[in-house]
Nucleic acid binder design. Structure first.
Lengths: 121, 121
DNA sequence: CTCCTCGTACGATAGACCTCGTAGTACGGC
DNA sequence: GCCGTACTACGAGGTCTATCGTACGAGGAG
């Protein structure tokens, strides 16, 4: 069938706040590619409301990107909304902060520190 | 044996502080069993200097326990020292705090919060 | 309308991971 | 010296993951 999909607004499945699990979040963040995504989203976070998938630079194919975005979404780390042909991604800061206070910022700070440490002379 | 193994003090391979990677730590903490180990070690941390493997209660076989302890050690989360026939485990709080300030405590707090949330009525 | 871009779905593959069981080594007690 | 305890090593099974390639639907640009 082509199936009667309500095409007005394609909706995506997100876990509710209560469904977000710490192990899932940690697992999502433990992959270098996904950590990279989260860092880029965090950098943008202050200025805008979301980045499209293609705005985020990853050294993998599109299929793999889609996979990582899905893992991030299903673990509750990011939120995805369709906007025309693009899909906007944003961190679920409020939910994460309510569930695990300070976790996201601590991980982001740690990631930045490590990046500087690794690339340091 | 024939091989001259210095049996005086069996040494275990630990990563140096500089070798500890954030992704490795997050991955180590993203497994429920290992998170459980870390929580028990943290609970003991104030009182003693280490718990033997068998003092930590895990619903898996010993082989599996050994595996998880190894992952925790090789990722730099815990330190292991032989003491006679037992092996004492302790968190590497200083190293983790130096590399990723606040990370361990934030995760431990989050784990406790989630445990209460899940088992709550 | 036609095309082009954005992202998805599906299948495939190779590697990692969690779990276990059995056999083996190191150390302390008798 | 002999045995029991504590943990390890090795191998195996089953599942999950990361990556890719190709083919497809949805929406804007011309």
């Amino acid at each position: 069938m082509t199936t009667a999909a309500p095409s007005s607004t394609r909706a995506l499945d997100h876990p509710t706040r209560a469904e977000i699990r710490l192990e899932g979040v940690l697992h999502a963040l433990s992959d270098p590619m996904r950590l990279r995504v989260v860092r880029q989203l965090a950098a943008d976070d202050a200025g805008l409301g979301g980045l499209s998938c293609s705005q985020i630079d990853l050294p993998v194919t599109k299929s793999t990107s889609t996979h990582h975005f899905r893992v991030l979404r299903e673990s509750g780390v990011i939120q995805q909304i369709y906007r025309g042909t693009a899909k906007l991604n944003g961190l679920r800061r409020d939910d994460l902060e309510a569930l695990f206070p300070g976790l996201l910022d601590t991980v982001l700070t740690a990631a930045t520190a490590q990046a500087e440490r690794v690339s340091a002379p």
